[in-house]
């Protein structure tokens, strides 16, 4: 067990260190998100009613798109420099190493999003009663993006031009997330209880976090050979 934990921590430490050496890669998706969100008021007009109605959808769609932007980093560099095959050769279940990498990706992409979410809600004039719900949907939904994204990247990592294909594979799988998240935020914006969709999102999150490492492992075995 100690070996398992040690390897989990070692992978996280190394990946965080590598990420800190490439800070621009970390900042770009967040800046992209900010720019996309400022584009909407310009595009649909700055009327507060319109904005507050589309706010949940806009924030969520932008969050998914910006997540796709940096997603390939989960495995692509490791695939190129051989760290991925070394990961498959570690003397622990590969699923744990995969989970460590997913955790790092979540920390690097979702934490800034969670910190900035109130700002986005403010910019898009989201009803204040829905702010909390928006934050909870992001908290529950972003691990799903990281997990499902890891499966997609693992499937396409050996392709030279996997980018567009990756979006084609992942966006459909993320549609349910989008539907439940926006349903929850809209419910609490209109004074209804968001419990139903939030419970579903929590269930989806638990399932994907538990099951996706197995799918990622299977996909990596196909890609690394």
């Amino acid at each position: 067990m100690t070996g398992l934990l040690a390897i989990f921590i070692a992978i996280m430490r190394r990946d965080l260190r590598v990420a800190m050496r490439q800070r621009s890669d970390l900042l770009n998706p967040i800046l992209f998100l900010l720019v996309v969100i400022t584009l909407f008021p310009l595009g649909v007009g700055p009327g507060p009613d319109v904005l507050s109605r589309i706010a949940p959808g806009v924030i969520w769609v932008s969050a998914i798109l910006s997540a796709l932007l940096g997603l390939e980093r989960i495995f692509r560099d490791d695939f190129r420099d051989g760290a991925l095959e070394q990961m498959l050769l570690l003397p622990v279940a590969v699923e744990w190493s995969v989970l460590a990498k997913i955790t790092v990706h979540w920390l690097l992409t979702a934490l800034p999003l969670l910190v900035l979410a109130p700002l986005f809600a403010l910019l898009l004039n989201l009803t204040p009663s829905a702010w909390g719900t928006l934050w909870v949907t992001l908290l529950l939904g972003t691990p799903v993006i990281s997990c499902v994204g890891a499966i997609g990247v693992a499937l396409t990592v050996s392709l030279n031009k996997g980018g567009a294909l990756l979006s084609l594979l992942l966006l459909p799988l993320l549609i349910p997330l989008l539907i439940f998240a926006t349903a929850a935020v809209e419910a609490s914006a209109t004074g209804l209880s968001p419990a139903g969709p939030l419970a579903l999102m929590a269930a989806i999150m638990v399932l994907t976090v538990v099951l996706s490492p197995y799918a990622v492992h299977a996909a990596l075995r196909v890609s690394v050979n």
């Binding site: 260190r17 590598v18 490791d78 190129r80 051989g82 050769l89 003397p91």
Partner: peptide
Amino acid sequence: RSAYHQELLFLGHKAGVKPEL
């Protein structure tokens, strides 16, 4: 697998050296 990989050191063409570190 895990007992085997405990006793194995494999260095391929690319050996997993992270260029940033």
